[in-house]
């Protein structure tokens, strides 16, 4: 088992780096770094939430982008209604206050996850993979059909949501908002994974029948896990809409689901911090490769094949040493 000292030695410098990144960006006079790392933090939130399903729950969902999209569209739609001055459904004036929009985005994503999860979790294995994918695509096409919110082209937001006491349109404040959100999600996920609920989810992932003989119904536990993961993705989506001040159907697209999966596996399946490393590695790699060739996916594809077939532990496992335990 990885020792606490080893973990601290690896994780502490990373957190210090993340906390001090704005200084580096200022020193290098490179504001792009801030926006790049904001994106990394946001994708890390989505990847951590997906890992609850993939790594801890053993549920291979290929539709996680759906909940990112729902979160982003909640923010976008609420914002849009305040700008055009026409209430949503004739009653709700919309909102541009992050203290309202973010919780609503999380709730909306959780609601969608509840309905979709209730249907998908009736199946398992290959069926589950295909069905989560299909439902995500269904939302993708629905978003394309939302003509009043930009349809195929998506919808630009002319400003970020406001946050009391914080100038969110300043990239520096927004970066820290993302960092705090990620830390919060990591802390919540840590508590959950080691709770009694988390124990059952982990137990059911490899041996659902045995869990049943202990008098526990895996379906309801998995559904709750699916909803929690969906809510996390919803938060990521809401932040992403704010970060880019833009929403588009692409946020629902299954390639985003696939990329989130890649981040989880690259970073370390069934570890909490692994997906954060995976998100950073994936986005930075994309950034670097794109500098050299526009056909970077041509190289990334085969690399991915080799990595998933031969390297099992992920970056976190490499750094911490034995990635044997689920922690």
């Amino acid at each position: 088992m990885a020792s606490i000292a080893r973990k601290t030695a690896v994780l502490l410098p990373i957190f210090v780096f993340l906390a001090a990144l704005p200084l580096l960006a200022a020193y290098l006079d490179n504001p792009y770094l801030l926006s790049l790392f904001s994106r990394i933090l946001i994708f890390a939130i989505a990847a951590v939430s997906l890992d609850l399903l993939l790594g801890y729950g053993g549920l291979v969902s290929l539709g996680h982008a759906a909940f990112v999209g729902v979160g982003a569209y909640t923010v976008g739609i609420l914002f849009h209604h305040t700008t055009i001055g026409e209430p949503l459904l004739g009653i709700f004036a919309g909102s541009e206050n992050a203290l309202i929009t973010l919780p609503l985005a999380v709730l909306a994503a959780a609601g969608f996850a509840l309905v979709i999860g209730a249907m998908c979790l009736r199946t398992s294995g290959m069926h589950f993979i295909m069905i989560t994918l299909a439902f995500a695509q269904m939302l993708y096409y629905t978003a394309i059909g939302l003509e009043q919110y930009g349809g195929d082209d998506g919808l630009p937001l002319y400003a970020r949501n406001t946050f009391p006491g914080l100038d969110t349109n300043n990239d520096l404040s927004f970066y820290y908002l993302c960092l705090v959100s990620l830390l919060l999600i990591l802390f919540l996920a840590h508590r959950m994974v080691h709770s009694r609920f988390g124990l059952i989810i982990r137990g059911a992932s490899h041996n659902p029948d045995r869990i049943q003989t202990l008098g526990v119904n895996p379906y309801t536990h998995r559904l709750v896990c699916f909803v929690i993961a969906g809510a996390g993705a919803g938060l990521a989506g809401a932040l992403l809409a704010n970060q880019s001040t833009y929403i588009s159907p692409g946020l629902f697209h299954w390639t985003l689901s696939g990329e989130l999966m890649v981040m989880v596996l690259l970073g370390g399946l069934g570890t909490l911090f692994g997906p954060v490393l995976g998100a950073a590695a994936f986005l930075l790699l994309e950034e670097v490769l794109a500098m050299y060739t526009e056909h970077w996916m041509f190289y990334l594809g085969p690399v991915l094949v080799v990595v998933v077939i031969f390297a099992r532990k992920g970056l976190y496992g490499l750094l911490i040493g034995s990635g044997k335990n689920h922690d």
């Binding site: 508590r191 959950m192 080691h194 709770s195 009694r196 609920f197 988390g198 124990l199 059952i200 137990g203 869990i211 202990l214 008098g215 526990v216 536990h221 709750v224």
Partner: peptide, 20 residues
Amino acid sequence: LTLAILAHSGHTFRFWRHCL
């Protein structure tokens, strides 16, 4: 063992406290 100990002791939706 914790799973087995907790199996028959009330409801299982406890998200917060460390199971051990």
